[in-house]
Amino acid sequence: MEVLTNIGFDWQVALANFINFMIILFIMKKYVFGPTGAVIKKRQEKIQEGIDNAKNSESELLVAKQKSEEELKKARNEANQIIAKAKENGDDLVARAQKEADGKVDEVMAQAQKNIEKQKEQMETELLEKTAGLVTLGVSKILNEDIDNTKNESISKRALEALKQS
């Protein structure tokens, strides 16, 4: 203890300096190191956040690119399918129309044939009638006698039947 006193030890001063050091420790912790550390930590967090965001954006961009490529591929496939289906439908439609047209043509042809036949028959009848009339007229001229209407009709009928039979 005497050695300590010789080099200036004084418990009162030592205690005061000890307390003063504790005050400085408190000030440094609360007002100097604390805020400085907090700012540095905050900055590091912000930088890390930026790096993370950049990384996330990169991966998101990659995912979006992949997704868009997939969508494009899908759309292309769908378009091809639609085109193929449309072509199939078109072909069907054309075939059906063709079939329908063919049917109609046959029908028209049949009808025309029918009409022609009918007209032919009519014309034949008319021709026969006229021929019968001419026959009657010829006969009357040959015989030089007037033929009344009743006779005329009967001669015409007979001539017509004879023509028909021939």
């Binding site: 009162q12 300096n17 003063n20 050091f21 400085i24």
Partner: peptide
């Protein structure tokens, strides 16, 4: 309780650190 000049210097430093902080 005697106040030594070294104690006063430490107090001055404490005030300096406090001012620096605030």
């Amino acid at each position: 309780f005697g106040i030594a000049n070294s104690t006063l210097m430490i107090l001055l430093m404490a005030i300096m650190f406090l001012c620096l902080g605030i």
